[in-house]
Design a protein around this nucleic acid. Structure first.
Length: 569
RNA sequence: GGGCCUGUAGCUCAAUGGUUAGAGCAGGGCGCUCAUAACGCCUUGGUUGGGGGUUCAAGUCCCUCCGGGCCUACCA
């Protein structure tokens, strides 16, 4: 039995994520996790909320809440929504956990022992009114290049020129609007990634089967300009893992915390510890190659914005520690999902957010569309028309109607149990051949994390059932040869169970509904289609399920189109 | 500015340099009547963004121009 460690990029705590965030990491990770479990493999599927950083502090302040309370509340909200989408995490952790604090500090010490931490004193903008140092993006002013009045400290959105906050004319705090800014000296810890460059380069070069998107971003960072740069791993914030602690090999870091991007990936490990503490399980056999993790296959899922941190920073942390931690084996990255001619926008409330999606339709509808249109090779686009068409055609007509037509046919002609009599012939043999071929193809696409191709293959498997029924025509055969019609009907009812098993990673609720209808708990993966189509024997009782997927009407679609065009309300 | 990705049928997407560029949806025709007005079969539709080049052979490789997108290290 293979062992799969699967992590999804951890969503930021600040607010509810939109469908683009979902399809970029959590959903495909869940698909893979469910598939591996269905194949009988041992799976540890980890996700968490990424809770530290400036935006969390500001969002909490805006909500008038203590940041810890705010994060706890938002974590529960996100966890509830994740359950709603049937994301099957073994554990949904929190980067603010005690386990992560200990582990993050541990890694920092190990990196320091390896000579990979250096202290840097630099000058940064401090807002006296806000009482905090401001990240470049939290400073606005007039662009010295083009005169644009809302240029950010890092870049002017009008002329795209790269800026430094000190370049801005009349700089002000984005938070308070205050112009009471000054440059202050501050000391930070830097991870000497430049020292790790050739090691990381060799590692990336060895990953010839990774998505182009993943390796090209990594190589860009490795080779751009002077090559991989050292990176600050601390910040002047209150909310985070304290950078000064008992046993720290440095001093003068009081009141500072580790940068979110240092502690966030470490949370993958810490979340597994959280899981172990909760369940009594053994986290080390997933993460320590000296403690049983050497046979683990580790796959990460993320949007393209996360790639540099997962291909370079986090591996630098792992490798630099000189400890036997499990390193990622495959990084599946995704492009962005756009919304109806533009981008999803959290700030402008443009697009569909996860909570809203579930208010409108059940999880499976969204899961199917998102996964079958996953932005793998390029950015892809959500349109309501496309969504409506896919749901109505693929789910309602092809799959749902198949279940409906065969169960109702059987009920009316034979009653609600698999009828006896008849035998299979050439047509059935041909179907079995096709199914075997397609199921093997489906497995291959799933193993390769080719999400859209897997979805297309699954759909083709559904279509094969309709083709068979149409060609066999048991409703006609029944008039002259009821035994033969019974054999055909038995096969088709077994197809329903087979479809439930194969479709479960994509549409778990519908899969359960199909199994419930067939009154079986048999979820065994079809090693051979012939055997799978004999799983439910003659006389096995079933119930005719309710409509599996309802159709989306034009009026509904238009209504939603209006509702989600502008501001979230 | 630099780097990367991308442009293929009306739409969404496929195609290790190798038959006549393929699917789904939409459109047209036929069939079926078990079914959620569902299903099946057949079919229309392409100067592969433009131009040039390499090659026996180019959607695929090279150059160039045009369009779309992302990243560019202190948002996360």
């Amino acid at each position: 039995m293979a062992r799969h460690l699967i992590t999804s990029a951890i969503p930021y705590i600040n607010g509810i994520k939109h469908l683009g965030n979902l399809v970029g990491s959590q959903l495909p990770a869940d698909l893979f996790a469910r598939y591996q479990r269905a194949r009988g493999n041992e799976v540890m599927f980890i996700c968490a909320t990424d809770e530290h950083g400036t935006p969390a502090e500001l969002a909490a302040a805006k909500a008038g809440k203590d940041v810890a309370d705010y994060c706890a509340e938002m974590h529960d909200v996100q966890a509830e929504i994740a359950r709603g989408f049937r994301l099957s995490f073994d554990h949904f952790g929190r980067s603010s956990s005690a386990q992560n604090r200990v582990l993050t500090q541990h890694f920092a010490v190990k990196l320091a022992e390896a000579g990979l931490i250096r202290e840097v004193t630099e000058k940064q903008m401090y807002s006296i009114t806000d009482g905090r140092f401001l990240p470049d993006r939290y400073i606005e002013g007039t662009c010295p290049n083009c005169g644009f009045e809302s240029a950010r400290g890092d870049q002017c959105d009008n002329c795209t020129k790269q800026l430094d906050p000190v370049d801005l004319i009349n700089p002000r705090s984005v938070i308070s609007g205050s112009t009471d800014l000054e440059l202050r000296e501050t000391k930070h810890l830097f991870l000497r990634q430049s020292e790790m460059r050739s090691k990381l380069q060799d590692w990336i070069d060895s990953k010839t089967d990774w998505p182009l998107l993943t390796t090209s971003i990594a190589k860009k960072w490795l080779n751009d300009g002077d090559g991989l740069q050292d990176r600050g791993i601390t910040r002047d914030l209150h909310w985070g893992v304290p950078a000064q602690f008992e046993g720290a090999p440095w001093s003068g870091m009081d009141g500072k915390v580790f940068y979110v991007w240092f502690d966030a990936p470490i949370e993958y490990i810490a979340a597994t510890e959280e899981w172990a503490d909760k369940t009594g399980g053994d986290w080390a056999r997933w993460w320590r190659t000296d403690r049983g993790a050497d046979d683990v296959t580790y796959t990460q899922f993320m949007g393209k914005d996360n790639v540099p941190f997962h291909t370079l920073s986090f591996p630098a942390t792992i490798l630099g520690s000189n400890e036997p931690w499990k390193l990622v084996d495959y990084i599946k990255s995704f492009n962005y999902l756009n919304y109806d001619g533009g981008q999803f926008s959290t700030s402008r409330g443009r697009g569909v957010f996860m909570d809203q999606a579930l208010e409108i339709l059940p999880a499976d509808y969204w899961r199917w569309w998102l996964l079958s249109h996953a932005p793998e090779s390029a950015d892809s686009e959500f349109t309501w028309e496309n969504f409506q068409t896919s749901v109505n055609k693929d789910l309602a007509d092809v799959l749902g109607n198949f279940v409906s037509r065969i169960t109702k046919f059987c009920r009316s002609k034979f009653g609600e149990a698999l009828p006896a009599g008849g035998a299979w012939g050439e047509r059935e043999a041909a179907l079995i051949d096709e199914l075997n071929t397609r199921i093997r193809a489906y497995e291959t696409f799933m193993e390769e994390k080719e999400v859209r191709k897997a979805a297309a293959e699954l759909r083709a498997i559904w279509v094969a059932g309709n083709e068979y029924l149409q060609a066999a025509a048991p409703w006609t055969v029944f008039k002259t040869d009821p035994d033969q019609a019974a054999a055909q009907t038995r096969l088709a009812l077994n197809l329903v169970r087979l479809y439930a098993v194969l479709s479960a990673p994509f549409i778990p609720d519908a899969s359960e509904a199909m199994l419930a209808g067939m009154q079986t708990e048999d979820r065994s993966w079809p090693a051979d289609a012939k055997a799978a189509l004999e799983a439910l024997p003659v006389g096995h009782a079933f119930t005719t399920p309710e409509v599996l997927f309802r159709k989306i009407a034009d009026e509904e679609r238009e209504d939603w189109q209006q509702r989600f065009a502008g501001t979230r309300g």
